[in-house]
Design a protein around this nucleic acid. Structure first.
Lengths: 214, 214
DNA sequence: GTCTATAGCTAGATAGAC
DNA sequence: GTCTATCTAGCTATAGAC
């Protein structure tokens, strides 16, 4: 079946908001790309800010759909962390605009004047996901399965590594020498990120004590 | 001595571009914050895009000022990587808008219509810095000092972890429970990021072989 | 649910006095 | 080097016919 107008609008709006941000996109442009007149767009979404929030909610749902199920798994912390990281990477690697929109939410304040209904809720859901990662690391540190790191800092690094990579567009393609969103690249990054979290970069043969200065 | 108009403009423009992006900031707003009329601003910068490029150039210089000197150091790869990561973190932690502007450059395409002079050059300088990190990791993999990772993917993770953290604003403050840019937080993150790159998250006592599934 | 028409405003940029 | 005044074009949003 062909998509409803509402779905078509969300689709093109997501692509454009991801590329140029809230302020950089006009309602006229979105309407045209969706094959509608501008006024018809305001029939489906009462304001530009409401459209943005609707786009953001879809993105958050996409990520939650992957990550939430992994949080109720059993097993040791390392295994659950692996599963959660896999899910996060998959959710970002699956759709080329997810990471960019998430990053904008994390990094930009304001943008939409006079916070519209739903924005705070969407941000809270992102916060909740982040807190799940922090809790996991804290648990691992408590049971001594992970080293006594600063869990909040490690989670910041993890989020940055995961989200930035899939938001890096042309820059990322140039660094990799191939498309970030190719199936092989996504699989490689999933592996590489878990490996980095597990045991860093040093060769196992030289790991880790003899390289620690003090 | 008090700052020239040009310096004052660059200062306020950087703060606003970092917060809301190129399209989200008006010349009127910048002028007012700099204590000038809008037309005076166009006397100093021939267009909004030219102003943005000037802001970006300052940011790139700030990062180069920290990182470039570390690239000519001697010693083993792990030591040089530590020095480069320290420099990167310091350059981002020193000024609260550096990371956000760098992130926008890495993540956003287009924005400024019909690329103004200097933009391509600034992007090339960022590329060159990234390539230095890739080269360092490649060298370490060649001498077996680092495990045979995918250097490009590892660098993507490193950049994301470093840049995102200092761009994460209120979200980062909430995750940490204290300001991202406090002196202690910057020092902690510098340490944590190096530690993560060196040996990951697992406890040294359980590291790394016995946790690898295959 | 889609359209045309338009209101009301702000944007980037320019002209020219001082 | 700063200003006021102005141009053109874009914006979000609304009114109301069909």
């Amino acid at each position: 079946m062909e998509p409803s107008s509402r779905e078509k609008i969300l689709e093109v709006a997501e692509a454009r908001f991801a590329q140029r941000g809230f302020a950089g996109v006009g309602m006229r442009e979105v309407a045209q790309a969706a094959g509608l007149g501008k006024s018809s767009l305001f029939h489906h979404f009462e304001s530009k800010a409401a459209l943005y929030v609707a786009v953001l909610e879809r993105v958050v749902e996409r990520i939650e759909g992957h990550v939430l199920p992994t949080l109720s798994l059993g097993g040791n912390v390392a295994g659950r962390l692996d599963a959660a990281v896999d899910a996060l990477v998959d959710s970002l690697g699956e759709h080329p605009t997810t990471a960019r929109l998430l990053l904008r939410t994390l990094v930009e304040d304001d943008q939409l004047g006079s916070e519209p209904a739903g924005l705070v809720a969407a941000e809270a859901r992102v916060h909740s996901l982040i807190n799940a990662f922090v809790g996991l690391l804290r648990e691992g540190a408590g049971t001594n399965e992970l080293r006594a790191a600063a869990p909040a800092h490690a989670v910041q690094a993890l989020i940055g590594a995961a989200v930035y990579h899939f938001a890096s567009g042309d820059f990322g393609d140039a660094v990799l020498g191939r498309p970030v969103f190719s199936a092989e690249s996504v699989a490689s990054y999933r592996h590489e990120l878990k490996q980095l979290l597990r045991s860093g970069l040093l060769s196992p043969s030289r790991a880790p004590k003899e390289n620690l200065p003090s």
